[in-house]
Design a binder for these strands. Structure first.
Lengths: 237, 237
DNA sequence: ACAAAAGTGTTTGGAGTACACCCATGA
DNA sequence: TCATGGGTGTACTCCAAACACTTTTGT
């Protein structure tokens, strides 16, 4: 394996979405900066400058693996951000130079969306910084590094458009066995709609890739819901 | 205005589409390289490394303006390409270093799609290289620099998906006054379909932004078709 | 008068939407 | 038995698709 030389001109950021059964969440890292004896806290997207010999998709995969310990995550590139002003905040640049030990000028970042099952216990093996899930609705009022707010919002837009055309992507966010109402809640969350229970059942019934299991929920204080699974092989192209 | 310093790590490439009434075309530059007394010819996308203080969208706008003399071109970023192997051909790197006078390593390129009316006389003011329209169907068998074939094909995919959702973009490609059958030919070209004449008329009739004019074609050897125009203000959001 | 493309209606099936009640389970 | 969410059917509307003949114009 060759030496790990970084390329300090291009980075990759990942907008990692999860779903806890009720809300759409995004995974962010805490950043604590000590400046002249005062502490400053904000959040940032998981991301990194790329390696000199690394493809962009590989960089995104690496970042997610370093952060969560997972492989085979749904990833898709959605936009690049290169406004020179995005590295215009001296706090961000100083922090970067400290953590990377490199001289940092302008950085163009390529942003990816990742969808993961929130129930998998994440091995947050990583760094000093801790990863936590935040409700996407809170993003617009959070303190975020660089232009990460803009990136998150554009990532959201991207999955909305995208799951319109391929509903399959949604299943990356659900547990392996799920109920129709979990699916409906998620669907409505991303599409910003409130769909009718009966009509939604009909819609799902004609998705061949949603298959009914011979199982129901356990230990719920009401009628137990039927469980379903997603079968990728049954997608019709 | 500040000095024009280039950033040799990031470039922008534009996949410029046009429509001649029958075929979908892409605008390419000829590249002639003399190597050890033999000439080598191929084509490339209009593109350039970015300026140190330039946003990505601005770079795309600049490139198109330098090439065509036009402003207000429909432009949309669609993907970034960063495989280290994309600058793996020594011919490409030597050519770049010669034309830019810079030491070139790896370059990540951000690709844009542009749609223009082929009937506007392009002021191909530019460079030594000449721009010409090529049928997109020929792209897969052409000699292209870098990974430009891949970029063009991905750009095509992008406009297909995109004009599904906003048919408006199509009108960027048509002359100001057009017939329904020109619109239909174009529509079928991008969607790879053959739509029915009558059904298509009905579809268009309920697009408020396609407005009928009190004019017909002139000098055609058959019944003259009615002309229409596109009215951007009548788009319903 | 002929060649060439323009323009025009009707029918059918499938998908989306609106809407209200009974069912199963645990507490 | 009650509270909580699960699960089901019908009627209407709208859109997409299939399909063939007459009209206009130039040569």
């Amino acid at each position: 394996m060759s030496e790990q030389v970084y390329n300090p001109h291009v980075s990759v950021d990942c907008v990692v979405f999860g779903f806890d059964g009720e809300q759409l969440k995004v995974l962010l890292l805490e950043r604590n900066i000590t400046e002249q004896n005062t502490e400053f806290n904000d959040k940032k997207l998981p991301g990194s400058i790329i390696l000199e010999e690394e493809d962009l998709d590989d960089a995104a995969t690496r970042i997610l693996n370093e952060l969560t310990g997972m492989r085979n995550i749904y990833l898709s590139q959605f936009h690049s951000f290169g406004n020179p002003a995005r590295t215009g905040n001296p706090r961000d640049v100083l922090w970067l130079e400290k953590t990377t030990q490199l001289k940092i000028g302008r950085i163009v970042t390529v942003a990816y969306v990742a969808l993961i099952k929130i129930d998998r216990k994440l091995a947050f093996a990583s760094e000093v910084s801790k990863a936590k899930w935040y409700d996407v609705k809170l993003v617009k009022d959070m303190n975020l590094a660089f232009d990460h707010r803009e990136i998150i919002l554009k990532g959201l837009e991207h999955i909305r458009r995208n799951t319109d055309l391929n509903p399959h992507a949604l299943f990356e966010l659900l547990p392996r066995k799920f109920t129709i109402s979990q699916l409906r809640t998620l669907y409505d969350m991303v599409h910003q709609t409130r769909s009718d229970v009966r009509n939604f059942q009909k819609k799902v019934a004609q998705w061949p890739f949603v298959v009914m299991l011979d199982e129901t929920e356990k230990n719920v204080a009401h009628r137990a819901a039927r469980l379903y699974k997603f079968d990728r092989k049954k997608i019709n192209y």
